[in-house]
Design a protein around this nucleic acid. Structure first.
Length: 108
DNA sequence: GTGATGACGGAAT
DNA sequence: TATTCCGCCATCA
């Protein structure tokens, strides 16, 4: 990584996600300037401490689903947080595409 | 330095 | 449309 803290970029992008909206790891990676670093985004969020105020729950995979196993507490927590923000899940535990917001940090 | 893993993405079947 | 397989890249052992 040439950047001092690429993780900070990810953090800022996550923090830039509007409430009630969700985005995908690949989207964050693309916005950060690394299209194929979707997994890296996941790694960064994984290293996020519970103390972090970042809306990590607004980040899901490209399928629109939570990447955690349904028997995991993390899965329930993320789903609960999204539901608290108005994000609804269908019978397949997927987020409605309408809730998918390409927030775009407005680079220029 | 090498091999395996992972909060993923996309294409193929 | 749903499931499966392969590919990418950074981190960990």
């Amino acid at each position: 990584m040439q950047e001092p803290e690429l993780r900070e970029i990810i953090w800022q992008l996550v923090a830039a996600i509007p409430r009630g909206c969700v985005t995908s790891y690949g989207e964050l990676a693309a916005q950060s300037g690394y299209p194929n670093h979707a997994r890296f985004v996941g790694t960064v969020l994984k290293q996020l401490p519970s103390d972090s105020a970042l809306p990590w729950h607004r980040v899901i995979n490209a399928r629109g689903e939570i990447s955690f196993p349904q028997n995991s507490e993390q899965w329930h927590e993320q789903r609960a947080r999204l539901a608290s923000e108005g994000v609804v899940f269908n019978d397949k535990n997927r987020v409605r595409l309408s809730d998918y917001c390409a927030f775009k940090t407005g680079p220029t």
